[in-house]
Design a protein around this nucleic acid. Structure first.
Lengths: 198, 198
DNA sequence: AGTTGTACTGACGCCATGTCAGAAATGCAG
DNA sequence: CTGCATTTCTGACATGGCGTCAGTACAACT
């Protein structure tokens, strides 16, 4: 109860102001509780961010399923997954930026964030290897490419949707879509990219 | 004199420890001066980071020239520029990570960092437009794609070379090279990528 | 030797943090 | 409704890094 009131106050704060402006005092001023109460439910502000990230993580994993659990066409699955990813990032962009901002100032949170990103490297890499075996994707070392594509997504999405003035979803989507498709499915990419237009 | 002693102490510190561990006291303990002396030459630690970034920026811009000032083959120019970029990032990775880490905790430095990244978006975007006019590159809105590719570079390079245990240069290079090439020069990409092998 | 200017430092106030002893509030047995 | 136990909360404190300022040490020039 109290705990989720604090989490809500945190989300609300970060919707309009950056993580660097967040203090325990300000945070708790957004609730009906006093400053020390915060420490009953979280170790520090970074602990709060860790919890907020956990909430968003679920949605992202769900959205990515279309491509990762490979049923149906690879290309359209990827298109679906990226679209879902953009959707979630647009929704929770401020939280994602806040976590990314907070991470470097705390060893533990930095680990959590890195692990979060690395978890996608694993699964994307696996899916690439599979498509390579199927002859859909050229041969190359999948892991570094997966890492690069994921870092791209993270950087782009946080930059585009991390603050109040958000970029246009469709421009962002078609840019990263193009890069994923031409890297992973170059043989079919031309057709697919023409289909979505530019 | 004193000023560059401080800068050196900063670089040295960041070579082995993250920005979050840097305090003015620790920094100046690495020099023969006292803590207040720091404030004679810099406003705060973020000001120091701004200066360090300025030093690295020059090298990066130099390295990128091969492709950006378009003389000769576009593909080999891009290959050269990316190789140079990886080289510089490998050299100064800890500084780049430290600046990226420090940026979100200071409004001014965040602006500097964003502007730094955005400056590459501009020139890359311009070069893409040119290659599109020449028929080398498919038609698409260049700016969002340039942004995405640049964020990828930043994310990958900082992750790969930001801490003491650095990743292998060639793996990193061939991954980002593949993505740039298949996105910008898909017609010739197959040949070029085979040439560098995997 | 005296004066001016520059480079430096000791000591201070400030602010956010995280803790702890104790105060309210809540629930429950008689 | 009363006394008691347990949970929830808070006022007050110590800590540590920050940024400042008055004042010292030192060099250079007259």
């Amino acid at each position: 109860m109290t705990r989720s009131a604090i989490l809500d106050a945190g989300s609300d704060f970060l919707r309009t102001r950056p993580f660097r402006d967040l203090t325990v005092g300000l945070l708790m001023a957004g609730t009906e509780y006093s400053r020390p109460t915060f420490y009953l439910y979280f170790n520090d502000l970074h602990g709060l961010m860790e919890t907020l990230l956990g909430e968003v993580k679920g949605e992202i994993v769900d959205g990515a399923r279309a491509w990762l659990s490979n049923e149906g066409n690879a290309i359209s699955g990827l298109q679906q997954s990226l679209a879902a990813l953009v959707e979630v990032a647009h929704e929770h962009g401020t939280i994602l930026k806040a976590v990314a901002d907070a991470a470097p100032s705390d060893a533990r949170l930095e680990r959590v964030w890195d692990t979060f990103l690395a978890s996608f490297d694993e699964v994307v890499s696996a899916r690439i290897a599979q498509d390579q075996a199927a002859g859909l994707t050229p041969e190359f070392d999948p892991l570094p490419v997966a890492r690069a594509l994921n870092r791209m997504d993270a950087g782009v999405l946080i930059q585009a949707f991390g603050s109040v003035e958000k970029a246009e979803k469709d421009k962002v989507l078609s840019a990263i879509m193009r890069i994923w498709l031409s890297t992973l499915y170059p043989f079919d990419a031309t057709a697919s990219l023409e289909r979505i237009g530019d």
